Simulated assay, not measured.
Amino acid sequence: MKNELNIAKLLAAFEVIMEKGETTEFGKRYQGVEASTDYDGYNVYLKGNGVELHIGFHNIYDLKYDQAHLKDSFLKKIDSLLQDTPAGDHR
């Protein structure tokens, strides 16, 4: 897959969700995005609104969605999660 996603930004959003989110069966949910990780932390998962993102070791990722507008909406939601964090934390 072409490296079109900013992994550092996605991982920063993961941290925001884990810090501010409500506990779910699988991880934490904040503003409609659920974040989870496996037991060793090498795999990170973000999902919401029909999109599932898996970020693995060495920042390899797999983004699954049925329609492009769902992906776009999901990525906008990720951006909005980071709006309230200090600029240096996710760039």
Rank of each mutant, 00 (worst) to 15 (best):
G48C: 03
F57L: 03
Y61D: 08
G48Y: 04
Y39F: 11
T24V: 06
A12V: 07
I7T: 10
I55E: 10
E4C: 00
L53V: 04
D66T: 08
G56I: 03
G50Y: 04
K71T: 09
K9L: 07
K20C: 09
A12P: 06
M18F: 09
Q31I: 05
V16F: 11
G50A: 02
A8M: 08
Y39E: 10
N43G: 00
T23L: 13
V33E: 01
E22N: 11
D40K: 01
F74W: 06
D66W: 01
L5M: 07
N59M: 02
V33A: 03
S73V: 01
L53T: 05
A12W: 04
D38M: 03
V16P: 09
E15T: 14
T24G: 06
L53C: 09
L10M: 05
L10I: 01
Q31Y: 11
S36V: 07
G41I: 02
S36L: 09
Q67Y: 14
D72Q: 14
N43K: 13
S73M: 13
G21C: 12
V16T: 12
G50P: 06
F26R: 14
V33D: 01
E25F: 06
F74E: 08
H69P: 00
I7D: 00
D66M: 07
H54E: 13
V51L: 08
Q67D: 13
E15D: 15
A13T: 06
N6P: 00
E22S: 14
L5G: 05
F74D: 12
D40T: 04
E25L: 10
A12K: 13
K28V: 04
G41V: 02
F14Q: 10
V44F: 10
V51H: 05
I60K: 14
L70R: 10
N6C: 07
E52N: 07
H54S: 12
Y39L: 12
Y61V: 06
V44S: 13
V44W: 06
E22Y: 05
D40S: 01
I55V: 15
A35Q: 07
H54V: 10
E25K: 14
L46N: 00
D66N: 14
E22A: 12
S73N: 15
K71V: 02
E4M: 10
K9C: 02
E15F: 00
N6W: 01
H58D: 15
L46D: 01
A35V: 10
V51Y: 05
K64I: 06
G56F: 13
A8V: 11
I17P: 01
G32N: 02
M18Y: 04
N59D: 15
L63H: 07
I55Y: 07
S36H: 09
Y42G: 13
L53Q: 07
K9S: 10
H69R: 08
A35F: 10
F14R: 09
Y42D: 15
L5A: 07
I17M: 05
V51Q: 05
G41N: 02
N43Q: 11
G27H: 01
E34A: 07
A12D: 02
E25M: 06
I60V: 11
Y39Q: 09
A8N: 14
D38C: 08
Q67T: 03
T23E: 14
L11K: 15
I60Y: 08
